[in-house]
Nucleic acid binder design. Structure first.
Lengths: 142, 142
DNA sequence: TTTAATATCGATAACCGTTACTGTTATTAT
DNA sequence: ATAATAACAGTAACGGTTATCGATATTAAA
């Protein structure tokens, strides 16, 4: 089953490769339809899996029940905002140190890991602050 | 919607509370049916979610497409064997250190994290070794 | 440059874990 | 005891993902 070239697969990859958010299959499907209006959702899924299996992209499971996709296959972690659901890259120094720490006192062999950090993203923090300020103003003036 | 006591909910929790593997709803359903043959899968799911929402148990998403459940709500990480799918607890010293490292250079607010370590578990390592030894024997004697 | 082989396509049905609905039963408070 | 209602068993619906199928496009060979 040697791979053949396909324009649709290129389109899926090209859509993903410049993105820093981590879209789901649905978003990718909608995006690629701009260029290929007749592409089917199944084709998008199939090619995403092929791209993953060939190491071109990676899947990111953030625990919200849907698969996210990421063209950045380098070793990095993710941050998930519990307020807006946004998934951001999280650059982290001494990423190898974590593996070392985990390997201590473990009898098996650790080949990789993925960490998901949860919290409130910068823009949601700003929104929250603005909301608080507004309520404070209303309370003092009203 | 004040909670009422239910024997089925107790049974679900009791099944889970002494386990160190991290069973899925299916396994829990099968297990509880020993005691309550007429319990329905929906009841199991409903009570698992109630138990989670009340902080009695936690859900563990290891990326295999199904939800795992864990009665150990303390802060700890998990190891997933990529060979047999087993999910084990992974005790890890300086677990807070990881959060500190991640918080560096991040503008948002990190409230928690979960890390999943992948590799080959101890028993699979043993099996692999036995398999290798067997093949070596066959090669030298055949 | 035809021809043959087959990977990929679009369309859609099937799959499967999970959730929601419904009439009935069990638990709790009065 | 009785009333109020949370939880139940059973089952249908839901939604993301995967598999199937005949048609089409890509690649290699003639």
């Amino acid at each position: 089953m040697a791979l053949k070239h396909s324009r649709q697969r290129d389109a899926v990859y090209n859509f993903l490769k410049d993105r820093k958010d981590h879209p789901t299959a649905d978003t990718i499907y909608a995006g690629v339809r701009d260029e290929y209006p007749n592409i089917s959702l199944g084709t998008v899924y199939r090619n995403l899996m092929v791209l993953r299996d060939t190491g071109k992209i990676r899947t990111v499971d953030v625990g919200d029940g849907v698969i996210h996709f990421d063209a950045d296959t380098s070793e990095h972690n993710h941050f998930i905002c519990t307020r807006c659901g946004r998934v951001e890259d999280l650059e982290m120094e001494s990423i190898d140190r974590v593996k070392e720490i985990a390997a201590t006192n473990f009898a098996g062999k650790i080949t990789g890991y993925s960490a998901y950090f949860y919290g409130i993203c910068e823009s949601c923090l700003t929104e929250q602050k603005e909301e608080t300020d507004r309520l404070n103003r209303e309370q003092t003036t009203g």
